[in-house]
Design a protein around this nucleic acid. Structure first.
Length: 277
DNA sequence: CTATCCACCTGGCGGC
DNA sequence: TGCCGCCAGGTGGATA
């Protein structure tokens, strides 16, 4: 499911069930997702209070009283559901339950198991191996077109590949890269280093707009994504190019340039060759 | 450093 | 109905 807007939607949706609550039990039903759980994962979290939920790019953080931080990534198909009252029997892909003393259960489900959970501390969060190399979060105050231009400078790879690379900007995935490039009129095939000046400004604006609108819409539900209350996201209805190959472009509407689907770095890209240069 | 390929997993869909 | 290949919102390690 999850690019930045979906993860942010999950964070917001889990706040009522978790923030300020004490974990009565943590049940891990599978020792390993993408990476093994720390052996003391459940023990260290049990009995602690969740101070707040944070997010950096596609990573969700559970900041615990006492200084521990649980790092959670949803991979491709991970989602989290907040259940009030008695939780139903876990299904095949319900890998973890966080149960609070207030009687709520937050359940992590991940069909493909590309997600991960691990533990660190406040002091070591910024230097954690999963976190230390990722680039700026595009919705953070520190992000700007200057930061983006600098990250793209000198890079011969395509702008599509550069934006998917979490070291450039952290949080975009396959959907929102295509949508951002469309909104800024930039071809996904253009060399990253040529996106400078006004192009970088337009792209920065487009990225921020797309992400904000998507969060507002509860993210995009293609298959797996659900908000923690079970609601679907509905930003997929606002896609302009993603998954729309063969349709006419919503901008130029010119029959001669229908939305194209190409493969870059092994991933599909959707764009209009007329509007994006 | 870069680019490419591949592995990690499961499930849904289309074609035969 | 079954089998097969392909595809999917992500990431990171190996390789050249």
């Amino acid at each position: 499911m999850p690019e930045l807007p979906e993860v942010e939607t999950v964070r917001r949706g889990l706040q009522p069930a978790l923030e300020g609550q004490t974990l009565k039990s943590v049940i891990v039903r599978r020792a390993k997702l993408r990476i093994p759980f720390p052996k003391d994962f459940a023990r260290r979290l049990t009995g602690s209070k969740v101070e707040r939920l944070g997010r950096r790019a596609k990573y969700l953080f559970m900041h615990m009283q006492g200084g521990d931080v649980a790092i959670i990534h949803l991979g491709m198909t991970g989602h989290m559901t907040a259940i009030s009252g008695k939780a139903p029997a876990p299904g095949k892909h319900d890998h973890v339950d966080f149960c609070t003393t207030a009687g709520a259960t937050v359940r992590f489900n991940d069909v493909r198991r590309f997600g991960l959970m691990t533990l660190t501390t406040e002091e070591e969060l910024e230097t954690h191996r999963l976190i230390k190399n990722i680039g700026p979060d595009p919705l953070a105050n520190s992000f700007s077109h200057e930061v983006l231009s600098a990250a793209l400078k000198g890079r011969a790879t395509s702008i599509k590949a550069a934006l998917l690379d979490q070291k450039t900007v952290a949080g975009l995935g396959n959907i929102y890269v295509s949508e951002s490039l469309f909104r800024s009129g930039i071809s996904p095939k253009r060399q990253a280093k040529s996106v400078q000046g006004s192009r970088a400004e337009k792209l920065t604006r487009a990225i921020q707009e797309v992400l904000r609108e998507a969060i507002e819409a509860g993210g995009s539900t293609l298959k797996d994504h659900r908000q923690p209350d079970g609601e679907l996201g509905y930003f997929q209805h606002h896609f302009r190019v993603y998954g729309k190959d063969g349709e006419t472009c919503p901008n130029c509407d010119d029959e001669r340039y229908r939305i194209k689907k190409i493969v870059q770095a092994g991933r599909s890209t959707f764009y209009c060759s007329n509007c994006q240069r």
